[in-house]
């Protein structure tokens, strides 16, 4: 089965972001596919590259990065929601003349159409609210 996974919760605010991560991991291990993980609303904060969690806590961003690298998973971040909240790729940082690029790799800033496109090619859509 192919899933589209939407993450609306920022990391650390609730367990929802971590649940989304676990869901993706489990679905992939069980042989399912993930069309795309789409970060929306406050979920875009997941892609912030400046997060430094304490050493004795799990690093959610690092875990998303590892999952993406291991399974060629696409981590898509709504560009409109991201810009508003200061999550900027190098291109957007230059365009808006801000001090730093803040988008972690391999997250990509994309349009909302990428969410709709993923839903169109999936069997199930699952959302992890804030």
């Amino acid at each position: 089965m192919i899933f589209t996974v939407a993450v609306h919760s920022p990391p650390y605010a609730s367990s929802a972001n971590h649940h989304a991560l676990q869901f993706c991991r489990t679905a992939i291990d069980a042989g399912h596919g993930i069309a795309r993980v789409f970060f929306y609303h406050e979920g875009v904060y997941t892609a912030l590259n400046s997060q430094v969690p304490p050493q004795d806590e799990g690093d959610i961003v690092l875990q998303w990065q590892q999952l993406a690298a291991d399974h060629n998973l696409e981590l898509a971040v709504c560009i409109a929601n991201a810009l508003k909240r200061g999550v900027l790729s190098a291109d957007e940082q230059k365009r808006y003349e801000r001090a730093a690029a803040t988008l972690a790799e391999p997250f990509q800033l994309v349009g909302l159409g990428q969410l709709i496109d993923a839903i169109a090619s999936s069997d199930r859509y699952i959302e992890f609210p804030a």
Binding site: Y40, H41, A80, L112, G113, L115, I116, D117, I119, A120
Partner: peptide, 20 residues
């Protein structure tokens, strides 16, 4: 209360543009 409602409405509009 945050941008939640507005961002959801934007998703609805884009969905329609993509012929959902």
């Amino acid at each position: 209360q945050g941008s939640h409602d507005l961002e959801l409405i934007e998703a609805a509009m884009v969905g329609a543009v993509f012929e959902m």
